[in-house]
Simulated assay, not measured.
Amino acid sequence: MLQTIQGIYRNGKVELAEIPQDITESQVFVTFFKPQSASLASQFMSFGMFSGSQQSTEADFRDTEFNGDIDDTLGWD
């Protein structure tokens, strides 16, 4: 019986979106669709992704970095 399950290839490993039913071991074939750039996939935000009249600067990104401040008021004990 053939089963097709979607997944993502990342850092040399295939991550399946779901567990195959009734299969504990099997030969598989992996087909790659539309390769994505690893550098873009690993970024949460990219420079200029929110276009508008005011563009973000690199300084804006540095200002928003979390540095693990001890005296922040986020409720950490």
Rank of each mutant, 00 (worst) to 15 (best):
A17G: 08
S37C: 07
F47A: 00
S56H: 02
S39R: 13
Q27K: 09
A41C: 05
P35L: 05
S53Q: 10
T4Q: 09
F32N: 00
E25F: 08
A41E: 04
S46G: 04
E18G: 04
G12N: 00
A41I: 00
F47H: 06
M45D: 15
E58L: 12
R10I: 14
S53D: 13
M45H: 15
A38T: 03
E18R: 13
Q6I: 01
V30N: 03
T31I: 08
G48H: 01
I8C: 01
T31H: 06
V30F: 06
E25P: 02
L16P: 01
R10F: 11
S46F: 01
A38N: 00
S53V: 15
F47I: 05
E25H: 06
P35R: 07
F33T: 02
V14C: 11
A41F: 00
T57P: 05
E15F: 15
T24M: 11
S26E: 10
V28D: 03
S53T: 15
P35C: 09
Q6T: 09
I5D: 06
Q36M: 13
E15D: 07
A38V: 05
V30A: 08
Q27T: 13
V14I: 15
S46M: 02
A41Q: 00
S46I: 00
D22M: 06
Q27E: 09
F33P: 03
S46W: 02
Q43N: 12
M49Q: 06
T24Q: 11
K34A: 05
G48I: 03
Q27V: 12
S53F: 04
D22V: 03
I23A: 13
T57V: 10
F29R: 11
T4A: 10
S53N: 14
L40K: 07
E18A: 13
I5Q: 11
G52V: 01
F50Y: 12
A17F: 08
T31L: 07
E18D: 13
V28L: 08
I8A: 07
Q43H: 12
V28A: 12
N11H: 10
M49T: 01
G48R: 02
M49S: 04
F32M: 01
F32S: 04
P35N: 12
A38P: 01
P20C: 04
G52Q: 01
F29N: 08
T31F: 10
L16H: 10
A41G: 14
K13T: 14
N11W: 02
Q54K: 12
G7D: 11
S53H: 13
E25T: 06
I19H: 07
P20K: 12
S46E: 03
T24S: 12
K34S: 05
V14G: 08
I5V: 15
Q55M: 04
M45R: 14
P35S: 10
P20I: 14
N11I: 07
E18S: 15
I5A: 04
Q55Y: 00
A17H: 02
V28F: 04
M49K: 02
I8R: 09
K13E: 13
I5W: 15
I23Y: 06
F29C: 04
A59I: 15
D22N: 07
G12Q: 01
T57C: 05
I23W: 06
F44S: 07
P35M: 05
E58T: 06
N11S: 11
F44P: 01
F33A: 05
F29P: 00
Q36Y: 08
A17R: 05
I19W: 10
V30M: 03
Q55I: 07
L40R: 06
Q6C: 06
T24Y: 13
G48M: 04
A59L: 14
